[in-house]
Design a protein around this nucleic acid. Structure first.
Length: 190
DNA sequence: CCGGTGATGCCCT
DNA sequence: GGGCATCACCGGT
């Protein structure tokens, strides 16, 4: 699977294809590696998307060409990581909702302030905290040229991917634009 | 185990 | 000023 190809597609095409891929994060304390197990697609014609109302200072990265990070702050305390997809001007992104810890577990435990492996990265806010994302300074930066790298994973079979309604939104809540790896214990909710 | 709820600050109208 | 692409804790089972 060619990641450049995936990131050039729409968020709806990219979101399921990012499952199984790896995020590698460089921190001052060492390297963290996780495997993406849950994603959600957002795009400009989607009332639930930050890009729905057009370009703003915060959402500008969503309107750039695929392959950048879009990181936002919400609920007064949480950060969330998105991977921008699609051509420039389209306002698309894939929220990384959950991942499986592979390396740098001790660093993530310190960042999260807990020990339980099963609760380290099973939610967007938890994942950002585990990876040491404590501000929005990475938003707009190009993946693989920043301290976060995206690497291809083993291809998944169609029957291993579940599509379901997205979580935590009120608008367009019926659209099945959340994707996760079936039976994976690190998915935020089943 | 589960549902309800308070925390907390930025963005955008 | 309203509303969050959330989380952890609390109380009742």
């Amino acid at each position: 699977m060619d990641l450049r190809e995936v990131l050039s597609r729409s968020s709806l095409e990219a979101a399921p294809r990012l499952l199984g891929c790896y995020l590698v994060r460089q921190t001052p304390h060492g390297t963290i590696k996780v495997r993406i197990v849950e994603t959600e697609a957002y795009h400009q014609d989607d009332p639930a998307s930050h890009s729905f109302r057009g370009i703003t200072k915060r959402t500008a990265p969503m309107f750039q060409a695929g392959g950048r990070l879009y990181i936002y702050f919400t609920y007064g305390m949480h950060y969330a990581i998105n991977i921008v997809t699609g051509p420039a001007g389209r306002g698309e992104g894939v929220l990384i909702r959950a991942a499986e810890p592979l390396a740098g577990v001790k660093i993530m435990q310190t960042n999260r302030g807990i020990r339980d492996i099963n609760k380290l990265t099973n939610g967007p806010g938890k994942l950002a905290q585990a990876l040491g994302i404590f501000d929005t300074s990475l938003s707009g930066q190009i993946l693989n040229k920043s301290s976060i790298l995206l690497r291809p994973g083993e291809p998944l079979k169609d029957e291993e991917i579940v599509a379901a309604p997205r979580i935590g939104i009120t608008k367009a809540a019926d659209r099945p634009w959340r994707f996760y790896i079936k039976d994976n214990p690190f998915v935020s909710r089943v």
